[in-house]
């Protein structure tokens, strides 16, 4: 680890198990992870290795069985559901593989969604939306609906939605998994820009070595444990 920035994400001794019928599957096993402020971390591993589960724990979407999850010095595993929701609204932006835009809302109204949880006026919200869509290069498509946009454009709207509240942490779950190579490259370039120019800390789950190559660090998850080396 060469980055000298303070840790933004600090996970210690985290375990997570799921029940499948009578069987208990240990997805994460006393796992430790630190992500520095401003880092772009790629999280790789085979299917079912628990990458998304780990991402969900970092983002406060799920709760660990044991261990602690500390983000920006705050133990989010100890927050109530309501406090955790408020924390997510302030500190985290999510980018999903299938974009998860609301089909009935235009691009700008999709991006506006997280701002509905703030005290900003309609005018202020629209100003933020305009900036976010400009950052992702979609200022000219504000009134288009998801069905009128290409996959790459939809993912850009998804990224605009993730950054519109100016969160510290961006969590991306296979952000290029549903895109062709060209569009995927554009999205990865955009994430790199956000990381380098705006200092966003990014944790990206991916299967794709081409995508992970854009990250500043790669970790591999296999059999519930993290490693800096790909599994054999």
């Amino acid at each position: 680890m060469t980055n000298s920035n303070p840790s933004l994400v600090k996970i210690q001794g985290v375990s997570k198990a799921f029940r499948r019928g009578s069987e208990e599957i240990h997805v994460l096993d006393r796992l430790d992870l630190e992500v520095q402020q401003g880092e772009f971390l790629a999280l790789m591993g085979p299917s079912g290795s628990g990458k998304s589960t780990l991402l969900n724990l970092i983002g406060g979407l799920d709760r660990a069985g044991t261990g602690s999850v500390e983000i920006g010095g705050e133990r989010i595993d100890q927050l109530s559901d309501r406090a955790l929701a408020a924390w997510r609204a302030r500190h985290v932006g999510f980018v999903f593989q299938f974009y998860n835009l609301m089909a009935v809302l235009s691009a700008e109204r999709n991006v506006e969604l997280p701002l509905l949880l703030t005290h900003l006026s309609k005018k202020e919200r629209m100003q933020h939306v305009e900036v976010a869509l400009k950052v992702v290069g979609l200022a000219h498509r504000t009134h288009h609906f998801p069905r009128q946009l290409s996959g790459g454009e939809q993912q850009r709207v998804g990224i605009a939605r993730a950054i519109v509240t100016d969160p510290t942490l961006l969590l991306c779950d296979e952000p290029t998994g549903d895109l062709d190579r060209k569009s995927g490259d554009e999205i990865l370039g955009l994430l790199q820009t956000l990381n380098r120019e705006q200092g966003k800390t990014i944790v990206m789950v991916t299967h794709d070595p081409h995508a992970s190559a854009r990250a500043s660090r790669i970790v591999y998850l296999d059999k519930g444990q993290l490693s800096t080396q790909p599994p054999a």
Binding site: G59, L61, R82, A85, A89, R90, L113, L117
Partner: peptide
């Protein structure tokens, strides 16, 4: 279902 999940991920509370 997924959209509700996304809203909650953004910070929409259960209530």
């Amino acid at each position: 279902t997924e959209e509700i999940g996304v809203l909650k991920a953004m910070g929409f509370t259960n209530e």
